[in-house]
Design a protein around this nucleic acid. Structure first.
Length: 566
DNA sequence: GGCCATAGCGCG
DNA sequence: AAAGCGCGCTATGGCC
């Protein structure tokens, strides 16, 4: 059972019941209160809600205390279908999809600026549909068309992507438990007391002074990399840059001071008091997640940097009294994904146990786990230089199917072809500039690259561009399939958690970062949540990869504080 | 004062 | 031994 829905004027809405194939099973129905209607129909029949965009509709429902179990996000699914069709990047809104359906000019998607926080009253009509088109008719027509293109894995991906959109809105709404007082204490301990904006805290001032002293008393701005390089040059120390790994090898009294400064300065700038003020309120960190924001299907965030929370700061992520955090992460997800994707029996056997790298090492690297890991990651990332190149030979000997799988993806990329994840998320096609470069066209000449050699193989810049894209597509098949798996895990886990506890006292997902989730749960339910995570992982594996010997173990920890999870 | 590229580093 | 994937965010510094 599905219900198409559009909001209309002043909180009212139009609804229409739909069959799974998208055909209407009744007339359009006008309701005075969208929120009340969704609440009532959700409780009564828990339909799959078909709407233009979860990120536009769902936050309002959440704000009114209404949650739904399932939806079909037309914009996200349109993007999946366009990508699958080799039309990556074309406008994805319902208005655009409707225009394509009718052969009419396709409106560009509304630009989502980073600070797009206008009051709703003053927003222009977001739908972008011609004035004489009933928006519900457009929703119904676009959905029906999408259902025709969705079968098998792609249908699963569409459902998972939509579930992810629901969850993303819920995560943004609920927020991650965050103790501002703990964060503040941590900052004060490391940096000194908070200062006025624009004033360095005491510890940074002190380090800056000692750096200047180490350089013979000349003022050096440790926040300016060029300044650091010049200062070392004056001392007769040539450094190619001020990167930390470079400075770590420099034997000069200023080097360790600069490293200490950089670390603290970064904490202060990126996750200091200003961040705390802006992003944490009411004991929660509320970032804005962007499902499908990365080409591989990983999520991105808009503001708040939720996917880059430094380890030290995780001390501030603390469960409410009487509650616990269940922190779960998939270990060695990407190599396991490759083993399953490639159907490499020997690698799959290695991935059937707990420590994949150790098993690979025992199989092909004389038990040397570190070398096995370098070889594996080098293969997934397309590393050609250094130690990894040697190790690849051994890996290929023992696991030919797995190596062949990523090399085929690399070749496809170099030749300008498309590659897909296990569920069918498709990489973008190469740009026009890339094609020019590869065909030795004007871009090649302008770029100073060499022309193709007589037998047509690109050289110079073209060769480099081809290899760059090969590394991208090589990694894409693995990273995007890992994202498929993670999305399936989220969808299953979200549904299982909704069956635990009681409303208002229910475990809830509060964080998701590529291959890691956090559930905030009443303490007595922690064990049940950990079980739910484990079984959701197994279910995700079955849904995405079917029968496979590959295991995707989830390490789970029940903790009061995120920092204690590892 | 805003815009942009670059450098650098946080996360997976 | 500093390359080999995907991101977001901040500070600097040149430019208009």
């Amino acid at each position: 059972m599905r219900i198409g829905v559009v909001g209309t004027w002043g909180g009212s809405a139009l609804l229409r019941s739909l069959a799974d194939d998208g055909s209407p099973t009744g007339p359009a129905e006008q309701v005075p209160d969208l929120v009340a209607a969704v609440r009532e129909r959700e409780a009564r029949e828990s339909p799959r809600w078909v709407w233009a965009s979860t990120s536009e509709v769902y936050p309002g429902l959440l704000g009114a205390g209404v949650r739904v179990a399932r939806c079909h996000d037309l914009a996200l699914v349109e993007a999946l279908l366009l990508g699958h069709d080799g039309r990556w990047g074309e406008p994805r809104s319902v208005a655009a999809a409707w225009a394509r359906l009718r052969g009419e000019p396709v409106p560009a998607d509304p630009q989502h600026g980073p600070r797009d926080l206008q009051p709703a009253l003053f927003e222009p009509d977001r739908t972008g549909l011609p004035g004489d088109v009933d928006p519900l008719d457009a929703v119904v027509a676009v959905h029906r068309r999408q259902q025709q293109g969705l079968s098998g894995p792609l249908a699963l991906l569409a459902a998972a992507e939509s579930a992810g959109a629901l969850l993303a809105a819920e995560l943004g709404h609920d927020g991650l438990p965050w103790r501002a007082d703990v964060h503040d204490e941590l900052l004060t301990g490391l940096l000194g007391p908070r200062e006025e904006p624009g004033v360095r805290p005491a510890r940074l001032r002190e380090l800056a002074a000692r750096i200047a002293e180490a350089f013979g008393g000349r003022a050096v701005n440790p926040d300016a990399p060029a300044d650091i390089v010049r200062a070392f040059a004056r001392e007769g120390v040539q450094v190619p840059s001020a990167r930390s790994w470079v400075l770590r090898k420099v034997e000069h009294p200023a080097a360790p001071l600069i490293l200490a400064y950089k670390e603290l300065s970064r904490l202060h700038a990126a996750h200091g008091w200003a961040w705390l003020d802006q992003w944490v309120s009411g004991g929660r960190f509320r970032p804005e997640y962007v499902p499908g924001g990365v080409v591989s299907g990983r999520w991105a965030t808009r503001g708040g940097g939720a996917l880059q929370i430094p380890r030290v700061v995780r001390r501030a992520v603390v469960a409410d009294p009487g509650w616990a955090l269940v922190v779960a992460d998939a270990s060695q997800l990407e190599p396991r994904v490759l083993a399953a994707l490639a159907g490499d029996h020997r690698m799959a056997a290695a991935a059937a146990g707990g420590d994949l790298y150790q098993a690979l090492a025992d199989e092909a690297f004389g038990g040397d786990r570190a070398r096995a890991k370098v070889a594996m990651l080098g293969t997934i990332y397309g590393q050609t230089a250094g130690e990894a190149a040697q190790l690849l030979v051994q890996l290929r000997q023992r696991f030919p199917a797995a190596v062949r799988y990523v090399e085929a993806a690399a070749t496809a990329g170099e030749e300008g072809r498309l590659v897909r994840s296990v569920l069918g998320r498709t990489c973008p096609p190469p740009s026009a500039a890339w094609r020019e470069l590869l065909s030795g066209g004007p871009a090649d000449v302008d770029g100073g690259g060499a022309a193709p050699d007589p037998d047509g193989a690109p050289t110079g810049d073209g060769r480099r561009a081809a290899r760059d894209r090969g590394r991208f597509t090589r990694n894409f098949v693995v990273q995007a399939s890992a994202a498929d798996w993670a999305l399936a895990l989220l969808a299953v886990l979200r549904a299982r958690l909704a069956e635990l506890g009681s409303p208002g006292d229910r475990p809830a997902l509060v964080f998701f970062q590529h291959d890691e989730v956090i559930v905030h749960t009443p303490e007595p339910l922690a064990a049940a949540v950990a079980d739910a995570v484990t079984s959701a992982g197994r279910e995700a594996t079955r849904m995405v990869f079917g029968p496979t010997p590959v295991q995707f173990p989830l390490g789970t920890a029940v903790v009061a504080c995120y920092a204690d999870a590892k």
